[in-house]
Design a protein around this nucleic acid. Structure first.
Lengths: 138, 138
DNA sequence: CTTGACCATTGACTAAAGTCCACGGTTATA
DNA sequence: TATAACCGTGGACTTTAGTCAATGGTCAAG
């Protein structure tokens, strides 16, 4: 669990991820990110972010775009970290993620198909024998 | 613009779409759905929804899952309806939609690829020569 | 040692997307 | 015509995901 590599302060991390300072602090409060602390004079006042936090930020964005709430994302991250030393658990979490993505992709493809058929129909001058839109289920 | 086919009242429409009564009314207020009105005794107190409203509801769900706000969805719907009698405009809107979907799908695929590589790496016992996560941009 | 840049914490505030509730009107059924 | 089941409207309320502002601590440069 080496965290010292590629360490940065919050403003650097902000630039690296595109998240605002406030959003980062908000995510830390919610447990979505857990940076280290590293002070010089005995105290440790500053948050220190590493490369793994950048990856985490990307994952958060991804999950969010899949419709997960931050609460759910935090839970998933916790589950992931809980089984971090158990490859089986890690793999299970990853596979669940991938299943969600696959499902999402097939939804997208069905929607694409729907729009494609509709476009073809429009371009054909909207003939009477319209394709059935009804199998468009999203 | 026949709207009488497959007409239903709001509770039927709710069952047909899975949207709650309140959500439907909310969408109507926002201009996302525009049902007809059909009363018996001179007045027209009740909203009447048709098959095209069911399709609209599906589209709303789809757009929403793509990250659009209701305001944006309403605008897109208005644009679509504005050029309803112009196949060229309709086709343009449809094509823009499809482009968005394609973009989204390629994002999904890149994420799937990322997770797939990570899964393989975990299952291989997390060897030193980790694949580069860095080309995972979402 | 002071100054400017950076950082943390707290709490108030906001917009979006609903949800809930109370009230009153409408319609089908008995 | 009474009554239950439905419908509409208005407004208050809630959750989520941040954003903003005030206050005060930390650190490097001069």
């Amino acid at each position: 669990m080496v965290k010292s590599f590629s360490a940065m302060l919050i403003s650097q991390f902000s630039k690296a991820t595109g998240l605002s300072l406030d959003t980062i602090r908000f995510y830390v409060r919610k447990g979505l990110l857990n940076p280290g602390r590293n002070g010089k004079g005995g105290t440790n006042p500053y948050q220190v972010f590493g490369a793994q936090d950048v990856t985490a930020a990307r994952m958060i964005r991804l999950q969010q775009s899949l419709g997960y709430s931050l609460r759910e994302i935090a839970a998933l991250g916790a589950e992931y970290r809980a089984g971090e030393d158990s490859p089986a658990r890690t793999a299970a979490v990853l596979r669940a993620q991938m299943a969600k993505l696959e499902e999402r992709r097939s939804e997208l493809e069905s929607a694409l198909d729907f729009l494609g058929r509709k476009l073809a129909w429009v371009e054909a001058g909207q003939p009477k024998d319209a394709p059935s839109w009804e199998n468009f289920i999203c």
